[in-house]
């Protein structure tokens, strides 16, 4: 369970303090797919960074499977990100000097996999996102959609329980966006908890739950429009079984 309690984030703009959100609560159950929408500038990305332990809130607590992130030392926090999270950034966030394979490989090595096992897992993840033939291409030689798929492969290769995605389809044409969204729904079916920020109508349909961030508060939007194929009670952590 990924949980945020009483979250507050503010920025200094010149002399004045600008509070983006305050007393904000959020919880995602294991295996749930939550989509967060909201107007540009409403703070969706900022909220996602707090949930993913990439930023520190001014107040409140984010806890991951019961571990309060604020209690962790720098290295433990980094280790927690490695173990529990997969990140998909809007602009892909790939290392430019590394090939697609190497990009996926890095976190696997950090997890202590032997080199051959890490490479096999990275290869498999890239095959899964349809890039089995572009393993040794560097990001600059891949299209936006392909780069985003490398980024997804990196996020899922070590099968983390939580995947955070910030507008993963915003820079893609509709065909590529379709492909990427299909991938997320497949990962979701495998049992991962997904929290995705997006505007796309299609992705709203995939979600178990849609929340809108408006004026610093999270509001529920509609109901489960697209019930998952597998009852959530059967979807527990572990391997995705894709």
């Amino acid at each position: 369970m990924l949980e945020a309690r009483d979250l507050k984030k503010q920025f200094l703009s010149g002399e004045s303090v600008f509070v983006l959100f305050e007393h904000l609560d959020f919880a995602a159950k294991a295996g749930e797919m939550v989509v967060i929408t909201g107007r540009s500038g409403s703070g969706k990305s900022t909220l996602l960074y707090q949930l993913g332990l990439l930023d520190t809130p001014n107040d409140g607590v984010v806890s991951v499977d019961g571990i309060p992130a604020s209690s962790l030392a720098h290295n433990a926090r980094t280790d927690l990100r490695l173990e529990r999270f997969g990140y998909v950034f809007q602009d892909y966030g790939l290392m430019p000097e590394m090939t697609a394979l190497d990009n996926v490989l890095v976190p696997l090595i950090m997890r202590g996999e032997s080199y051959p096992r890490a490479e096999a897992a990275a290869r498999a993840a890239l095959v899964r996102v349809g890039l089995g033939d572009r393993l040794s291409s560097k990001p600059a030689r891949l299209s936006g959609g392909q780069q985003q798929r490398v980024s997804i492969a990196r996020a899922i290769a070590h099968e983390p329980p939580y995947i955070l995605a910030d507008e993963p389809t915003a820079n893609l044409d509709s065909a590529s966006a379709r492909q990427v969204l299909d991938m997320f729904s497949e990962i979701h079916r495998g049992g991962a908890t997904i929290i995705m920020v997006t505007h796309e109508k299609e992705s709203l349909a995939l979600a178990d739950r849609v929340l809108e961030l408006r004026d610093g508060a999270l509001l529920a939007v509609g109901t489960e429009t697209h019930p998952p194929a597998v009852p959530s009670s059967l979807r527990e952590g572990g391997a995705y079984g894709l």
């Binding site: 990100r81 490695l82 173990e83 790939l94 950090m110």
Partner: peptide, 15 residues
């Protein structure tokens, strides 16, 4: 930026 990404995906600062 690369360093930020590495940290984000869980690579320890020491690494």
């Amino acid at each position: 930026r690369s360093i930020g990404i590495l940290q984000a995906i869980g690579i320890r600062a020491s690494g």
